[in-house]
Computed example of a mutant assay.
Amino acid sequence: MEAEINQVLVRMQDNLSSTQLQLLKRTLEDVLNTPMTSSACNNAHLLALFLTAKEVEGCSTKTLAYYESTIKHMSLTVAKPYIQICSDDLRRYLSDYESQRHTGKVTIDNIRRILSSFFSWLEDEDYVVKSPIRRIHKVKTPTKTKSVLSDEDLETLRDTCSEQRDLAIIDILISTGIRVGELVGLNIADVDLQNRECVVTGKGNKQRFAYFDARTKLHLQKYLQERMDDNPALFIALKNNGARLTISGVEERLRSLGRRAGVGRVHPHKFRRTLATHAIDKGMPIEQVQKLLGHARIDTTMHYALVNQNNVKASHRRYLE
């Protein structure tokens, strides 16, 4: 095999630089001399290495599971070793996935981003010369205006609450903008009522400070004064022996309050989006909103925030007329 590789190099030496010839030599040796059954080219082995790398980077268990299931599904469908997959294979896979499952463009772009991360890692680790996903650009997704909670909606929800706990949950969600997973993970020890702040653990186990208003402080104080248990969790279930409140428990409770209040569909994420929208609407710099919400990328923050059209009109008159 070495003789054949040398023949190729001799024929290409007039067309390639010495650096390019060396790269070509290593590539030919990897492709021609390495058995496809070896651990270096085994799909399961490469996927395990990639997931380990992402875990070291701080990805959560939930994110790792999503990466794994997405890449495994692609692997089973394409049915090729990762190092042999080309751009056309991935284009066909994404197209078939969309048509067969009737998914939206957002879902397809999420899959594309995960595959891009994986194949970029393969390229960085020299398992492939070039990532096949490079030629597949970001999928254009429709921009939809998502609703937020008005001041009237919030007051109606508060009036509907019969439990001090529910009132405290509504106020801490709307004043901090924390995720529902961060909410249920809070302990009493994480909350500083005096300074109206709390330490939340977000995605990737990253901690940050979240801040709440005076109304939230008062409702939290009343709720904690009612508590007669020794559970360290900030919010506990009203039943089930006062166990820590779960994500599904919060979601179901808010849906029920929303139906009773007649304010439409209410879910934890709607409070987060409402906070981001109001913060930007009132002039808070987008970088500070990003820190407030715990986003790694500012692009993510922009997806949460709606801009009041009246403010756009006023700014146009102020700056452009």
Rank of each mutant, 00 (worst) to 15 (best):
L275V: 08
N310P: 00
H278R: 15
F235Y: 06
R265V: 13
L275Q: 04
Q309P: 00
A296L: 03
R272S: 01
R255Q: 15
I280N: 05
Q288Y: 12
V312H: 05
V263G: 01
A243I: 10
T301D: 01
T300N: 08
A276H: 09
R259W: 01
R265H: 15
D281S: 14
R318N: 14
N240Q: 14
R260P: 00
R244K: 14
H267V: 01
V312P: 06
L275S: 03
T277M: 07
R265A: 11
R272I: 04
K282Q: 15
L238Y: 03
N240Y: 11
L293Q: 04
V307C: 08
A296E: 13
L245F: 03
D281K: 13
V312M: 13
V289F: 02
G294H: 07
G258T: 08
R255Y: 13
G264N: 09
K291Y: 01
N308M: 08
V250R: 03
F235W: 03
A296D: 08
S248A: 12
G262I: 09
R265Q: 15
L306Y: 07
V307Y: 08
L238V: 07
A243T: 11
A243L: 08
L292D: 06
D299K: 12
L245V: 06
E252R: 13
L254N: 09
Y304C: 04
N311Y: 00
Q288P: 00
L292E: 01
T277N: 04
N308E: 12
A276E: 12
Y304N: 06
S248E: 14
G249S: 11
N308D: 15
P285H: 08
R255A: 12
N311G: 00
V263S: 02
S256P: 04
R273S: 10
V289Q: 06
L293C: 00
R318W: 09
Q290I: 08
L306Q: 15
P268T: 08
Y304R: 10
G258Q: 08
N308C: 04
N311H: 12
K291A: 12
Q309Y: 13
H316F: 13
V312F: 02
E251K: 01
R317P: 00
V307M: 12
L292Q: 10
S248K: 14
F271W: 02
V266T: 07
V266C: 07
N310F: 00
S248W: 09
V250W: 03
F235H: 01
I280P: 07
G264E: 06
L254E: 09
A243G: 05
G264V: 11
V289W: 06
V289I: 15
R318K: 15
F271C: 04
S256Y: 11
N240A: 11
T274W: 10
S248F: 05
I247E: 07
K270Y: 04
S315V: 05
R297Y: 14
L234W: 10
M302L: 11
R244E: 05
A243M: 11
A296Q: 09
V250M: 02
R259V: 12
L254D: 09
N311T: 05
T300V: 15
V250C: 02
F235Q: 08
R244C: 05
